[in-house]
Structures are given as structure tokens and as C-alpha cells.
């Protein structure tokens, strides 16, 4: 699992690649910590190369959303595959996030 964070067109874009499961969730949460420190910026979670997400990964996404909202920002998700879309649908996460 790898992550990268870049500022693009006034947004903070986090690109996630690989399988976000129990084994890597603690490290991924640390890697994505800079997203929680930004102020008044929209965050884009680019999931084009994310293959899998477990409940521990969903919790990371949820924390990012809570932090962003508290600071007046939005979180937008792009490029989910069918498996991740299924997980988002069955947990009601499709109602929490914006998608592009």
C-alpha cells in the first residue's frame, strides 16, 4: 500500500495505491495525517489504484472527513472500483462522501 499527497488546483489530492486492510491501516493513517492538518481546503481521495478497503480503511476515510468538515473543507472521492463501491454502499458511506 502506498500513498502520496500533492496540492493540485487549490485542492489537496491524496493518491492511494494497493490494498488498504488491517495490516497496513496504522501506517496508512500516519501517512495521511497531513490531510488532517490542512485548513479550508478541499481534499480529494484518488482511489483509481486502490484495490481493496476494509473497515479499518473506512475508519481512516471517516476521520479525514470529520477533520475536514470541522475545518470547513470538503472530501471528494474519485475512481472507486466495483469492490470498493460495494463496501461503500453496504456501509452507507456513499451517503457521507462526495464523489467525482
Amino acid at each position: 500500500m502506498t500513498t502520496s499527497i500533492q496540492q493540485e488546483n487549490g485542492e489537496l489530492v491524496a493518491r492511494l495505491e494497493g490494498r488498504l486492510d488491517t495490516a497496513v491501516s496504522a501506517q496508512t493513517e500516519k501517512d495521511l495525517q497531513p490531510l488532517n492538518e490542512c485548513q479550508n481546503m478541499n481534499i480529494v481521495l484518488d482511489c483509481n489504484k486502490l484495490e481493496y478497503i476494509s473497515s479499518s480503511g473506512l475508519r481512516i476515510f471517516l476521520n479525514i472527513l470529520k477533520n475536514a468538515k470541522a475545518k470547513g473543507g470538503r472530501v471528494i472521492i474519485t475512481g472507486m472500483n466495483a469492490d470498493i463501491n460495494k463496501v461503500f454502499t453496504m456501509t452507507g458511506f456513499t451517503n457521507l462522501f462526495e464523489f467525482r
Binding site: 476494509s54 473497515s55 473506512l58 475508519r59 460495494k86 463496501v87 454502499t89 453496504m90 456501509t91 452507507g92
Partner: peptide, 12 residues
């Protein structure tokens, strides 16, 4: 129980 994990188990 961890409701988020339980939702995934039930959903799958």
C-alpha cells in the same frame, strides 16, 4: 460489536 465490520460481513 464493531458495527462497521459487521455490516461488511452481512453485506458480503
Amino acid at each position: 460489536t464493531d458495527e462497521l465490520a459487521a455490516m461488511i460481513v452481512r453485506g458480503m
